[in-house]
């Protein structure tokens, strides 16, 4: 287990370095940031002054090392647009995104996993068919449309929930519903197919032959093996829910990270965009590493020990 851990963490560290360099470099591919900051009416001298003031005239490697060096000490630079520390801006916004992402993820898991299991226990039964309809519609309906419809029906017509913002907890209801509905299909399908595979194995038959009751056969023998692919997928899904809710945050006017990233891109607020990309990529690295460790805990074969 120890050698597995150290190997896995080393890989994670290498991915972090690569990802941070890429996210830093990508920003310069979209054009000269100094010209973008100077604006369309800016003169060449203004752009030159900006270039010197922000250090864009230095070699890229130096700029990267400078940026990553201060990032390691917790300093992600100053926002060009607001002229306040980036960490402060992000700190104000991250709460909404984390709340929305985690709650949606939990709701999705709590619905998708039992539904997937129930569907797998009787393939082509009525639960399986309902689950299939949910999965197909969830994957086919765009979340912005579903979000808008939900606002119209539950916010405007019935007035049951606020139509936008997250000042009260009720404001989270619709975004969570829409976001988890987007996450459910994949989680459910992988639970279902994993369970169907595992339920057909000899060790499940052997567990029944031992006289174990069905709920133990399912929870102890089948589920433990069926969740292995689910864990990997869930980590990626959680990353998407935490980072990819730009559309949902825009539709519901929630001031989260996704919306901040979008606004900052429009404002060419480079340090903020870089910081968000860095944070989100690191988040993915952490989540997939955690998923791998969790899988190793569940499956001794992955630990490379007997």
């Amino acid at each position: 287990m120890l050698s597995f851990l150290s190997k896995r963490l080393l890989v994670a560290l290498l991915v972090c370095v690569t990802v941070s360099a890429l996210s830093f470099g990508l920003m310069f591919l979209s054009g000269d940031p100094a010209i973008a900051i100077a604006g369309s009416g800016g003169r060449a001298e203004d752009a030159e002054a900006i270039r010197v003031a922000y250090g864009f005239d230095r070699p890229l490697v130096i700029q990267y090392l400078d940026w990553i060096g201060s990032a390691l000490t917790g300093d992600l630079g100053q926002s060009i647009y607001f002229n306040v520390p980036v960490t402060e801006i992000i700190g104000n916004r991250v709460g909404v995104t984390l709340t929305l992402g985690f709650i949606s993820f939990l709701v999705a898991l709590v619905i998708a996993v039992p539904l997937g299991i129930a569907a797998a226990l009787r393939p082509n039964g009525w639960i399986d068919r309902i689950a299939l309809v949910i999965a197909v519609s969830g994957q086919a309906i765009p979340s912005f449309w579903l979000g808008l419809m939900a606002i119209v029906v539950f916010g405007v017509w019935y007035g049951m929930v606020p139509i936008s913002g997250a000042e009260t907890w009720q404001g989270y209801i619709l975004p969570v519903v829409v976001l988890s509905y987007y996450a459910i299909p994949e989680l459910m399908r992988i639970t279902r197919s994993g369970m169907i595979d595992v339920l057909a194995t000899d060790y499940v038959r052997a567990a029944k032959a031992k006289g174990l009751p069905m709920h133990l056969v399912i929870s102890r023998h089948a589920l433990r093996n069926a969740v292995l692919p689910l864990v990997s997928l869930a980590a990626v899904q959680l990353g998407q829910l935490l980072s990819g809710s730009i559309v949902i945050e825009s539709v519901f006017a929630l001031n989260g990270l996704g919306r901040l990233a979008w606004e900052s891109l429009l404002r060419s607020d480079l340090p903020v965009v870089q910081a968000i990309i860095l944070i989100l990529s690191l988040l993915y690295v952490v989540l997939t590493t955690l998923a791998d460790i969790l899988n190793a805990v569940l499956d001794p074969r992955l630990r490379g020990a007997s």
Binding site: D202, Y203, R205, A207, R224, N225, P300, R301
Partner: peptide
């Protein structure tokens, strides 16, 4: 007891 002992034992327990 079953034909294939490799698949009749649960690999995770």
């Amino acid at each position: 007891i079953f034909q294939d002992p490799t698949s009749a034992l649960n690999p995770t327990l």
